[in-house]
């Protein structure tokens, strides 16, 4: 996100509508992200997290990465937070505030958060810092010719990045089997 902002402000292709939309989404996301950790109700925290992850999806839409946006909605909103909520409701389902949501690890949390922020910002700026974002790159005639972005993405995954993709699949399978092994009673 930082690199996007920097590159946007540094270049001449400053798209006003896209930037206004991005700013609004970003403000909502930051507020929601803070509320996720400060709210004293587990279900509200999950709902604020929903706003954050939905905002990521909307940012993908702004960049015309429709496939990524829909995958974001499908996986993060439709599956992961639903599972969070499901777990909460299956166990306690507390209405109102809970007292035991906070603990004494705030300093460590702040340090780790800043470290991760620094690392990610460095990596993103180092990689994409000089790239110009082009919001109006998409041309409808390309889709008709079969040369669309979703297809480009799938071609890349299944040719150039096939081995990383398969490795991640095996990792997920291992996690799945591990979960079954832990959950089994005998």
């Amino acid at each position: 996100m930082t690199a996007q902002l920097i590159s946007l402000f540094a270049t001449e292709t400053f798209e006003v509508p896209a930037n206004i939309a991005f700013s609004i989404i970003a403000i909502f996301m930051v507020i929601a992200a803070i509320r996720v950790v400060t709210t004293d109700n587990v279900v509200h925290a999950a709902l604020w997290l929903m706003v954050v992850l939905g905002g990521v999806g909307l940012n993908f839409l702004l960049l015309q990465a429709e496939f990524l946006a829909m995958t974001q909605f499908l996986i993060y909103l439709g599956a992961i937070i639903v599972l969070f909520l499901f777990g909460v409701m299956l166990t306690r389902a507390p209405l109102g505030r809970s007292d035991n949501l906070d603990n004494k690890q705030r300093p460590i949390g702040i340090v780790v958060g800043l470290l991760v922020l620094g690392l990610v910002s460095y990596a993103v700026i180092k990689t994409f810092g000089s790239d110009k974002l082009d919001f109006s790159a998409y041309d409808g005639s390309q889709a008709v010719a079969g040369n669309n972005r979703t297809q480009a993405l799938s071609d890349a995954i299944f040719s150039q990045y096939l081995i990383p993709f398969e490795v991640i699949s095996v990792l997920l399978l291992a996690a799945l089997i591990g979960a079954i092994v832990i959950a089994r009673r005998d």
Binding site: V43, E66, F67, T71, F73, V82
Partner: peptide, 27 residues
């Protein structure tokens, strides 16, 4: 949209929230 049918899947998974939160929020 290019991702037409994924929209259908995404919306049908988001529809879970209405039911889930209605049940929880009723207390």
């Amino acid at each position: 949209p290019q991702i037409g049918i994924l929209l259908v899947l995404a919306m049908s998974s988001i529809a879970v929230y209405g039911i889930m939160l209605a049940g929880w929020a009723s207390g």
